[in-house]
Design a protein around this nucleic acid. Structure first.
Length: 289
DNA sequence: GTCCAGGGAATCA
DNA sequence: TGATTCCATGGA
């Protein structure tokens, strides 16, 4: 398998740490030299900053590396304009955008995003990453590159004979049955991923996602935002987002008692159809700082 | 030992 | 509809 290379020259909005550690993805890891190596679809790629350019190199099993990168890293979208719009909302937004100014929202595979965020429920990011790696190693396809072995995220079909017990053995905990049931629903065609990708109606897609086992409001919104469905208007609310929204705009004494609808209303009024992007700046800012 | 993590589902009012 | 409780697991 031939290694391919692509150089992204002086991108305006692009920072490796911001993109890979803002909580949207789980399969990119920092290397000793500060570059990141990750895997998506059947691509194993390393990205390294070189001056103001970014060098992508790796294995691209299907298609062309440049095209895969264009799509995955959302390079056709003008983030400078979006950041400018959001920065005008208030000083908090301005500050959080300044902190995470290199964020781009990836276009991740829908199926992988569904399973990954089912695993994310009441879980922490290091452990989520570990579970996804073990799942991929057990059931994905092997790809060798530079004397290291990588594993693709298993397809629905590759999981068709996996039992609840098998999942439990990977450390999934109470999420085992949810993975099992959701995989079954998709294999049985009760939820058709292609139809979801072709449906422009966000609320219809959301409603369908909510029928999947382990997919509630927060996970559904993460799927809508972080997968190639790419709905920038949804606003996933987890403990961190609730925390930061309460601190900034609500100031309830007990943040755990803040009404979700109140947060949603504020988000919609303030950030409109860019609420999801705003959410990501706020999440990253609050969680890191 | 206790608390917490990118919550969801079941249960009960 | 809305609030409570339980659910595995591993690290701090």
């Amino acid at each position: 398998m031939e290694e391919q290379q692509y150089i992204l020259r002086k991108p305006e909005t692009f920072n490796l740490k911001d993109i890979f550690e803002c909580g949207q993805c789980f399969r990119w890891n920092e290397q000793k030299d500060g570059s990141y190596t990750g895997i998506w679809k059947e691509n194993v790629v390393n990205v390294k900053k070189e001056g103001e350019d970014y060098i992508f190199s790796g294995i691209c099993k299907k298609g062309n590396l440049e095209e895969e990168i264009q799509k995955y890293f959302d390079l056709d979208r003008n983030y400078e304009n979006l950041k400018k719009k959001l920065s005008q909302k208030d000083e908090y937004m301005k500050k959080s955008i300044q902190y995470g100014k290199g964020i781009r929202i990836l276009n991740q595979d829908l199926w992988e995003t569904i399973i990954s965020f089912i695993i994310s429920a009441n879980n922490n990011i290091p452990r989520i990453k570990g579970i996804i790696e073990r799942l991929s190693k057990a059931y994905g396809k092997k790809i060798e590159w530079k004397e290291k072995t990588y594993y693709t995220f298993p397809t629905p079909n590759e999981l068709k004979d996996v039992t609840v017990k098998d999942y439990r053995a990977l450390g999934l905990g109470f999420r085992d049955i949810r993975l099992y049931e959701t995989t079954k629903m998709i294999l049985d065609g009760k939820v058709n991923l292609k139809e979801l990708e072709e449906n422009p109606n966000t609320m219809e897609v959301r409603k369908k996602l909510l029928t999947l086992s382990g997919v509630g409001p927060k996970v559904a919104d993460c799927i809508l935002l972080f997968s190639d469905l790419k709905r920038l208007e949804v606003f996933p609310i987890d403990v961190w987002v609730r925390r930061v929204m309460n601190d900034l705009y609500i100031q309830n004494e007990d943040e755990t008692k803040v009404n979700k609808k109140q947060i949603e209303t504020i988000a919609k009024e303030k950030f409109g159809n860019l609420a999801g992007l705003a959410q990501q700046y706020l999440f990253y800012w609050r969680r890191e700082a």
